[in-house]
Design a protein around this nucleic acid. Structure first.
Lengths: 222, 222, 222, 222
DNA sequence: CATGAATGAGCCTTCATTCAT
DNA sequence: CATGAATGAAGGCTCATTCAT
């Protein structure tokens, strides 16, 4: 079951340290010196095991992406028999958990955040490998909720509104903690946040939904 | 009317170039060399006029913050006689314009974005000087919409949902342009976006609003 | 009269040290660290004054080329009234002096030798700037000696035979000094060498010359 | 007949790759990494089989020297019954073939050329083992041509003139191909070159020869 | 008021070599 | 007999900063 590349002690130590430091500093500010020092390894070890800084970064990215998706698969708990609304709730919850986790898998979230704010060459890979599938799943759910005949741009707009909320609760921490030191939006509040975002978004889509499903009598729902 | 610091030609050129480069690259990736080259100034000019790189950054930040807020004041067009819903629409529109503008005032938006994703020592200043007032205004509007008695945390949650959407439409460009090359969400689509976010958010708050304003008959709206 | 680039003390010291070290080691083996240490300058000075190692190398090359050609111009002492044979003697002497000088201008000869044995990107520049004119001059002299109607390839072959001898007396030093420790072929023997090469070559071309000047009676010459 | 050192597959692969790369790059620019990669061997194999980079280089040098001399012995085709002039022609031809061959044995020529332009510690060995015998043979031939009583320095001068020509036709390729793209002096032109050099040199020595053999009537030759 | 010159720390990378199995 | 792993020294280069005029 072991990955063939995982048998080196130094290599693992570097992966660990690199994950942490890249997550904290981003690609360009992180230095291989720091990483190696923290890993207790020689500087040249990076070149030996990963070719160069880029290679290390890519390896780190892929590794923690795997961990993250194994721990929180995008369709975690989604069953085909569920209603689209239920699926959305599950999706949001899973998405939040993936990006807000504070454990080791969380590094991936931070790596991602850095890529977002200053995309490197690795960004294209990330988009294709993980963002696109997630987006596709979300848009299918949203389309199902909005009903047939809805334009794709509408679906995209609503999906982005949902994703935007999730990401903001993740990234706004530096701001919110300064503005409202007493409020916290962390891993422990995931349930509350998922609930809030789900309800807010489902209501936000109701008008469009009704437009596309005119036969359903208004004021009957729930 | 002239600021006392504005009388040097070199100084102005540096401010201009620094605004552009800091906005593009962020604080740490931007180099004083690049800035001075672009400004046609000597490399020592930065330290001469601004002390050091940090000083320049701070000056740039404050300068473009002023410009940005003069151009798009947070309460742009908001009149006291408007309903909270109208105020929200105006706020969102103004907010979007401020962060999505592509002209010189836009540099501030980009500077802010960089600060957001990797806060520097200047972050605290920014939060107090410009984010807090904006947030306060938004939360007042949201509170007015939700009605009396609503808990502050609720207000915060809804406000964050709104802000999150706006920011995401601003920052998601690298992702969306890759996922859906044909769709665009730029300065030209501000009207569409403002409309979408406003309607989505107003609906999203309806349930909570109704809960706090039980006397209003359901199913009567619109 | 001063070059505009020559007013910096450090710059001059680096040019001096770089000339020596590049001449000794060649481009790739020489290190900027060594050069700067020897010049008493900071490592970053190279970047400041010359951009990078390549820039320094090019500057050195051009500088010492100038010195060398000012000291020993290819047509040194050649007058139009001289016979081609006399011109050849002068050319060979001048060529030998240029490549065998042991003073500062000699660095250029060594630089050239390194470029010859492992051409860098600077080789093309050198060929055009200094080798081509020299070759052209030599080939004109040789063509004049051989008489009209001689094929260009013949001219080239004879010219190369001449140049080959000159260069070998310059570069064979490591070999000869080991094989025949008592013999010396240095700057002090230039007269002897010039004489030898000139006579050897003039005789070497006689047959071809007579073929092209049949009217001249054999056995009458000299 | 097999050398005792020739029984390891890896060792042979390294010798092969090293020959090629050392020939192309010279000792200092060649890297053991490249060599091992090209040989399909582990990077530690060099140190295992040859001690270190120097050891490998020496082994390569000796090996290809052997091959080269087996293929083109310096006295290739020289018979004692030949006149000195005939011997010279044969020597020059053989010498040119050895240094201009493009096959595997040619690697030695290139190795030699690198040693020539930047002698390493291995240079002394080479001089003694292969240059000295060659030179001795050539000088004997030249002495025989020039006749008795000629001073050794004269013999040396003429020999160097001959060797210089041969080497130049070998090494001038980078220059000539730039100056006269249409002319070629490669392995295919060896006959032409050998002929040219032989005639040129024999004529070049005629005066000295006649001086030492006064009884021969001038103007009788050919 | 301004600048050309110079600095030292730090960056990523590459090298030949050695260790441990 | 051989190798994957690891090492330390050194390479060229770039940075923000300071000096001296």
């Amino acid at each position: 079951m072991d990955d063939k590349k995982t048998n080196s002690k130094t290599r693992n130590a570097i992966m660990e340290a690199a994950g942490k430091i890249f997550a904290e500093e981003g690609f360009s500010k992180a230095t291989v010196r720091d990483i190696c020092r923290q890993a207790g390894a020689n500087i040249a070890a990076v070149n030996y095991h990963f070719g160069d800084k880029k290679g290390l970064y890519l390896a780190v990215l892929k590794y923690y992406q795997e961990i993250s998706f194994e721990t929180y698969p995008p369709n975690l708990g989604i069953r085909e028999t569920q209603t689209p609304e239920e699926k959305l709730r599950v999706f949001i919850r899973s998405f939040l958990m993936r990006i807000m986790d504070e454990g080791r898998p969380a590094w991936f979230g931070k790596l991602l955040a850095h890529e977002f704010s200053e995309p490197t060459w690795a960004f294209d890979i990330l988009v294709e490998d993980m963002i696109r599938p997630s987006y596709q799943l979300l848009m299918e759910i949203v389309a199902a909720i909005l009903g047939r005949g809805v334009k794709e741009r509408k679906v995209l707009l609503y999906s982005m509104s949902i994703v935007g909320q999730c990401l903001y609760f993740r990234h706004s921490h530096p701001v919110i903690s300064r503005l409202f030191p007493r409020e916290a939006f962390g891993a422990k509040q995931i349930s509350e946040l998922a609930d809030h975002i789900t309800r807010f978004s489902l209501q936000g889509m109701r008008e469009e939904k009704n437009k596309n499903n005119p036969e359903v009598k208004k004021c009957k729902k729930k």
